[in-house]
Amino acid sequence: MTNSNEFINIVIICFSSIFTGNILLSYFLGMCPFIAVSKEVKTAFGLGMAVVFVLTFTCLLNWLTYHYILIPFQLEFFRFIMFIITIAAFVQFVEMVLERYSPLLYTNLGIFLPLITVNCAILGASLFMVIRDYSLVGSVAYGFGSGVGWMLAIVSMAGIRKRLVINKIPKGLQGPGITLIIAGMMALAFIGFTGVLQGQ
């Protein structure tokens, strides 16, 4: 009974981080790459995959750091610094490994990694995970879900922007201007999911 409850709980965490609590459209984290790299669906997808990967693993690592280093020594207030250096070291390490052992993955994923090291969505997810007191599995599910949600948002944005090319947009609004307005509309649309479930 407890097991199935926990399983359901994890599915809820994952689902809600994709839709109802989308890290980009509800919390507006990770906006800069969202606006800068959403011109092509292909690159948006590559960056999205990199975010899913990094979010999932940094949530795992940061959960371990928090519960096995910071809490025992009562250093919770250091979590900002600890989390960000863990993320930076992890991304650097993964980039080197990919470059060495998988040229194919490196071309498609690796070159985006340095772009997202200092992305606020990555740090944000780790901090939310602590505030909401998720379990280890819950944190990983939350990281994965947030990544998928971020990817969903940027890929849809890239799809919309591709169609914008054929539309007449007032000169002053071209580029980031119209992108922000569309991001706002997408955020409104995602509010529609709020009624489905709330996993916080």
Binding site: L75, I81, M82, I85, Q92, M96
Partner: peptide, 16 residues
């Protein structure tokens, strides 16, 4: 503790 942790990560990167 914080310095040791930072040094550990830096060490991993240097070795990598």
């Amino acid at each position: 503790i914080i310095s040791a942790f930072g040094a550990l990560l830096a060490g991993i990167i240097v070795l990598a």
